[in-house]
Nucleic acid binder design. Structure first.
Lengths: 156, 156
DNA sequence: ACAAATGTAACCACCGAAGTTACAGATCGG
DNA sequence: CCGATCTGTAACTTCGGTGGTTACATTTGT
């Protein structure tokens, strides 16, 4: 299937914003540096996230994006719907043959099947919050606070 | 998002084959007529369904496709995996910045999130069989057996 | 005023999918 | 054996969506 990577980008951006929550606005160039893409891609993403009420942005010097609420309150299904409009499934591109008993009824049946599966998908995402993502990341990256022996690199 | 319509086509084709189960092989041109597409599209689909063991095909005159088992035994997640390889989610197209604590860990966290959601999606599909699709279609299309007053058309 | 940001338009390159044509090969019925 | 039928597949075109890029008007803080 392979859809867009906007959801991955969105979770990434929100995670950065969550970590930088105290530092005020984060500019699109910084976020682009972390995601490894172009600042315009980030701004287009932030526009969607802003419309969903997940972030606020401020223009001008010293501006940037800020997370709207606490990470515990941001569930991933909200993020998903904010950046991936429409369904994960596609119907017939052309109307099927209405003179065939299957062609005449299949679309409505599929609509219902698609809706059920889509709901299951989003419900699974709803069980995770941005805070869960942050703690999963903290768990997999041994915290490495101050000096351990491992050759740690500075964060960007 | 909007992925491919192969899953819709596949369910449609299998439904037709289920209804024509007694009549021997159904040729790709007939199926294309019901789906309203090109026979080659159908044949490419049938190749995938054959690899998944859902149908058999036979070459030559009088050949065509046949459903392998009873519709009650064909769950929709099997169909989905047969024709939609890969995940419904896409990762970062370029590796994120490993010097950023988020960039360094986000991909593995997302892998796990994606896998969970994908499983939920397929589990929802697994609860439906091809037989369910057929009966849902029969329920929505009032059977119209023999002559009612409604101006029914002949099926193709 | 100047610098630093966003918001957006315009454009390009790429990729996957549907659709189409063409044809080699298998298979059945005579 | 012959011809009709049907699959399997390659090759190509078209189209839409997406990430990426450049450019620029606008806003805003110092």
């Amino acid at each position: 299937m392979a859809s867009s990577c906007r959801f991955a980008f969105a979770v990434h951006v929100l995670a950065v914003l969550a970590l930088k929550r105290e530092d005020g606005g984060v500019c699109s160039e910084f976020l682009a540096g972390s995601v490894n893409t172009n600042p315009v891609i980030i701004r287009r993403l932030l526009t969607r996230l802003r419309h969903a009420g997940l972030v606020t942005t401020q223009k001008g010097a010293g501006g940037g994006a800020t997370l709207c609420g606490p990470p515990e309150k941001i569930a991933l299904d909200t993020v998903y719907r904010a950046v991936e409009p429409g369904s994960a499934f596609a119907q017939h591109p052309h109307q099927p043959n209405q003179r065939c008993p299957v062609g005449a009824g299949i679309e409505r049946v599929l609509d219902e099947v698609f809706a059920t599966a889509q709901t299951a998908l989003e419900t699974a995402l709803a069980h995770r919050t941005l805070a869960d993502v942050l703690s999963a990341m903290a768990a997999e990256t041994p915290v490495r606070r101050k000096a351990t022996r491992a050759p740690a690199r500075k964060a960007g």
